[in-house]
């Protein structure tokens, strides 16, 4: 995992973290984010920003997650940026990622790109609520904002 160079150029390294959707495990996920950014030679501000952004995204999703459900967080580590996609199965049918909060504004400031995702539950799925997620992208350093 530490040897990025063995990877074909242009292909991202992929790291997936899957945890119970509980706030108690978010410190673990943000530590992974921080570690990946450090290994990818992000500058110190960008490492700090990604750690906070991932924390913010996960905290937002854990809030709407169905009881006893899982939080999945996928990191795609490219040469100059890391793309993060996190999602949960929401508890209620009308659940959505709230984008009118202070936390969301902070997330927009931290990440170079961020979007809220939502997909209705398919018929016959083992969960009733929609899948809600957040995708964000962070550049290694000195990004044009």
């Amino acid at each position: 995992m530490s040897d990025w160079d063995s990877h074909p150029p242009g292909e991202p390294s992929v790291v997936e973290v899957r945890t119970s959707a509980t706030a108690a495990l978010i410190p673990t996920i943000r530590a992974v984010a921080s570690d990946l950014a450090a290994r990818a030679d992000f500058d110190l501000d960008a490492i700090s920003d990604l750690r906070m952004a991932v924390d913010e995204a996960c905290a937002t999703l854990v809030d709407v997650a169905a009881p006893a459900s899982m939080l999945q967080c996928t990191f795609r580590v490219h040469a100059e940026h890391i793309e993060v996609h996190a999602h949960v199965h929401a508890g209620s049918a009308d659940a959505t990622v709230s984008t009118d909060t202070f936390g969301w504004r902070v997330l927009q400031t931290l990440a170079d790109h961020v979007e809220a995702l939502r997909q209705d539950s398919v018929v016959g799925a083992d969960h009733a609520g929609p899948t809600v997620g957040i995708r964000l992208d962070k550049h290694a350093g000195m990004p044009p904002r």
């Binding site: 410190p27 943000r30 750690r51 906070m52 924390d55 913010e56 905290a59 202070f102 936390g103 997330l107």
Partner: peptide
């Protein structure tokens, strides 16, 4: 060692 938006608020 860490300050999230919830703490900032």
């Amino acid at each position: 060692t860490f300050l999230a938006s919830s703490g900032l608020a």
